[in-house]
């Protein structure tokens, strides 16, 4: 119960962005600190975050391209300096910023002679290119050049097996890894028993999200990984027979809330995620889409704000209200929630 201990210490755990700069359109840098941490905690958080940042962040990429009439991806098109293969490699490197889910279509349709850059990609509304100057191809003749693209948000990298696609499209081995590099370092300060640690976290991203967003997403993804442990009673069916012998301590959200209610020392609302509220998946998705991830986010929104969210209905509001009422101290609700 790390968090409670932190909460119990004299200072609350805080993070701060120390430095943030944009080196180029495709290289963002950010430095963060997290303090105060007890001895050893910085390492725990640091390595976990580094690995999560490097491995768990999603990115948007072009995954497939369809050319008009090209026999295969190693052929050439008259009037273009690059071969199809090189164009595909250039497309692979294009960095996109989006928050979409699923697969979207995009296209390029230009007339030569001119350089085609990332700017020329006609993207769906929720997607934008990060570096408009990224080269794609060089048309040297007055020809029409059209490519249909497919955009997908994904994690890690895919090497697709090139099956015969009847539509004549070619897969691009997309790399959805927006975080370029992560480093962390630990500084100890204080003296004697009061020793505590400061965690420095450096993040370089490719521009499709800021280091801050990356940090945010990484922490969320990391927490998602731990969630099953918090829902232990649902998964505990296999332990049924041993139950009389050994009862695993169940740290459920409800229990914790009641604990919190008891000690009344102020609830770190930003540490409670809406995943933990046992909302219906519909409501949950609605909130997620509106960038509401923690209880704090939720409570800071007014009722009007919530109603403005796409496909948010009155029933959802009632559901949220019921849930909150069930678990949170009333005074808190009175203070924070204005509806």
């Amino acid at each position: 119960m790390v968090r409670e201990e932190v909460a119990g210490s004299t200072q609350t755990l805080q993070w701060k962005c120390v430095e943030s700069r944009v080196d180029s359109k495709r290289l963002y840098y950010g430095r963060f600190i997290l303090s105060p941490l007890r001895k050893g905690q910085a390492d725990t958080v640091g390595i976990a975050l580094r690995r999560a940042l490097l491995g768990e962040i999603e990115g948007t990429c072009i995954t497939r391209a369809k050319f008009g009439s090209v026999p295969h991806e190693y052929s050439t098109i008259a009037g273009i300096e690059e071969s199809v293969q090189e164009i595909l490699l250039n497309l692979k490197e294009i960095v996109l910023r989006s928050n979409l889910y699923g697969v979207r279509d995009a296209s390029i349709c230009v007339k030569g002679p001119r350089y085609i850059t990332a700017q020329d990609i006609i993207l769906p509304p929720s997607v934008e290119t990060v570096d408009t100057a990224q080269p794609i191809a060089n048309l040297t003749e007055p020809i029409d050049f059209c490519i249909d693209l497919q955009i997908k948000r994904d994690r890690g990298y895919q090497t697709e097996l090139r099956k015969n696609y009847q539509d004549g499209s070619y897969p691009i081995d997309a790399v959805s890894m927006p975080v370029r590099n992560v480093n962390y370092s630990i500084f100890s300060c204080g003296n004697g028993n009061e020793k505590h640690e400061i965690l420095f976290l450096e993040i370089w991203t490719n521009g499709s999200l800021t280091p801050k967003e990356a940090l945010y997403e990484a922490s969320r993804n990391l927490i998602d990984l731990f969630l099953p442990f918090l829902h232990a009673e649902e998964e505990g069916t296999s332990f049924e027979e041993n139950k009389n012998r050994f009862t695993p301590p169940l740290f459920t959200f409800q229990k914790r809330l009641t604990n919190l209610k008891k000690n009344k020392k102020g609830i770190p609302l930003n540490c409670i995620f809406i995943d933990q509220l046992e909302l219906t998946s519909r409501t949950y998705n609605c909130l997620k889409r509106a960038n509401i991830h923690t209880l704090l986010d939720l409570l800071s929104k007014t009722e009007e704000d919530l109603m403005r969210i796409d496909s948010f209905r009155m029933e959802d509001r009632k559901h949220i209200w019921d849930t909150l009422e069930k678990h949170l101290p009333i005074d808190l609700l009175k203070n924070k929630l204005s509806f």
Partner: peptide
Amino acid sequence: LPRQDMPYLQDGTP
């Protein structure tokens, strides 16, 4: 190895 598993330098580069 995935890049996060590789040994990394003091500036974080794997």
